[in-house]
């Protein structure tokens, strides 16, 4: 389990555009760095990030990103979303060595 830090503005007004920020603990090892003995450390990165919005039995991917080794350790991604109705934001990170992490945050639109 990796630690995540997701920031969603609380109780946005209907139809406002909010910025959603997602930070996750991960080394994002490039696969290009030698270790202390000079051996290349195997690549270990998050390859994909996805955010879904679910409301009233409907679920859509609202944002997704393919990450490469040039993304910094402990990846931070911020994107936007128009808050039209309350629902659940589902975050998913997947990567090398079967890495997977899922989080949900409820969105209450006022």
């Amino acid at each position: 389990m990796a630690r995540t830090l997701i920031t969603v503005p609380p109780n946005p007004k209907k139809n406002t555009v909010i910025e959603i920020r997602a930070l996750i603990q991960h080394p994002m090892e490039t696969g290009l760095r030698p270790d202390v003995e000079g051996k290349l450390q195997p690549r270990n990165i998050i390859q994909r990030f996805e955010c879904r919005f679910s409301s009233g039995g409907k679920s859509d991917v609202i944002f997704s990103a393919e990450l490469f080794p040039a993304i910094s350790a402990n990846p931070y991604i911020a994107f936007n979303f128009r808050a039209t109705q309350s629902g659940t934001l589902g975050f998913q990170w997947t990567g090398d060595n079967g890495f997977t992490q899922a989080e949900t945050v409820s969105l209450v639109v006022v």
């Binding site: 630690r3 995540t4 830090l5 920031t7 920020r21 930070l23 996750i24 603990q25 350790a73 402990n74 931070y76």
Partner: peptide
């Protein structure tokens, strides 16, 4: 804090 990677350690 929402951008500060150190907060991952603080939360832990």
């Amino acid at each position: 804090d929402s951008q500060n990677p150190a907060m991952l350690w603080v939360k832990d």
